[in-house]
Simulated assay, not measured.
Amino acid sequence: MSYIEASHYAQHYKDALLHDVVPFWEQHSLDLEHGGYFTCLDRSGKVYDTDKFIWLQARQVWLFSMLYNEVEQKQQWLDMAGSGAAFLRQHGKDAHGNFYFSVTRSGAPLVQPYNIFSDCFAAMAFAQYAKASGNGTYRTMAKNTYANILKRKDRPKGHYEKSTGNRPLKNFALPMILSNLVLELEDVLEEADIKKTVDFSVREVMEVFLQKESGLIYENVLPNGDLHDSFEGRLINPGHGLEAMWFMMDIGVRSGDEALIAKATDTMLRILDYGWDQDHGGLFYFMDAQGHPPQQLEHDQKLWWVHLEALVALAKAYEHRPGEHIAQWYQKVHQYAWQHFPDPEHGEWYGYLNREGKPHLTLKGGKWKGCFHVPRAMYQCWKTFDRIAQKHKLTT
């Protein structure tokens, strides 16, 4: 990849972020009456449901705070972040400090805090907004929320757990998200606390859920790390694995661990090889490790976030370990994603394509898709390709 190519990609992602994706959410998502954000937006940005999903509220607070901190100190971005932060502070959690899954437009609780993913994104949001606003109250809230997450991590659903315990599988999502969350909270936590969680996350991701024989990451394993022959035990989620690998690369950069970066790169390539649809292109959503019919009816859909995580992982892998194979994979995923997901008429990206790559739903936001994966990936790819271009410039 030449200096010109890297510069082109950097400008491409910067333009998409600042002139397409961010303006879409600025224009359509802010709730001027009750605070926070509308996330259920149709293709054109019209609100079709006003319920508020706490993890999406928190993700958007994080996003606009991050833009303010890292891109430009625009008052509009700080105000956008502040609206969501205040809404979360007032309506997001129960009396025990656990964050709900969803609330009404005005903030009345709808769905109880049955897992801790809302809490994880709330902690990220508060930490980033505290940095942007200088408000120490939110810094304290970030620290307290993180402490509550650690307290619940061994039994994250608490009394909302539906499992009887006869098949005690543990899930990949929590160690994956903790590996990123703890780096997001670097300004809030002590170094010893960061190291403890980083070490736990790397061990779980790269030694427990990553299987040596297949080179794949399984979504669920038994407590001792063994596999289980069941729907849940055979489940592969390529997007989760790819996202986790760029988290591992970031940890490797922070700690100077070249071996971790190399292992994450190799795992990323294995997941791409395994998860790519050879007939229609794109990455599958869910797969069964033994080739059996997956339980999820949406298993063969092509989802926005899966391809975005692949693009971020590939860009970072090329930055640290440049090579033709990674470059070819990047161009392959880039071409598929940019040909199928963006909506040139109304902006932003479609979230859900059928297996053939046509929009299955034309919404831009809903219960699961909000202002997070698209702009985060645009920012990450922009900055990564900018660094790649600068390295080329210095060596030529």
Rank of each mutant, 00 (worst) to 15 (best):
H392M: 12
V188G: 10
E184G: 13
I194G: 09
M245R: 07
F172A: 07
L227K: 11
K393C: 12
W276E: 09
D257P: 11
L235S: 05
R155P: 05
V202E: 01
F172G: 04
H96P: 10
L41P: 08
P175A: 04
M378N: 03
V71S: 03
L56T: 07
S65C: 03
Q60H: 07
L18S: 04
P23K: 03
C381Y: 13
F385P: 08
I54R: 08
A86N: 10
N354F: 01
G275Y: 15
A289V: 06
W25C: 15
D15T: 15
M378S: 04
E319G: 10
P23I: 09
V182E: 07
M1P: 04
A315H: 03
V306I: 09
Y330S: 04
E72S: 09
G84S: 13
R270P: 00
D94S: 03
L235M: 09
G35F: 01
A313P: 03
F121A: 08
A313Y: 11
V374C: 12
K393V: 07
N148C: 07
A108E: 14
D279Q: 09
C120Q: 07
I326T: 10
I326K: 00
N69S: 11
C371H: 00
M249I: 10
L63E: 08
K196R: 09
P322R: 11
A244P: 05
C371R: 01
C40H: 13
L41M: 07
A313L: 05
M287S: 11
I388F: 01
Y138V: 09
V312W: 09
F200S: 01
K153H: 11
N171I: 00
Q75K: 09
V21S: 03
S255A: 14
L314G: 12
G241L: 02
E345W: 02
L63V: 13
E186G: 15
Y9R: 06
N69G: 12
I261G: 10
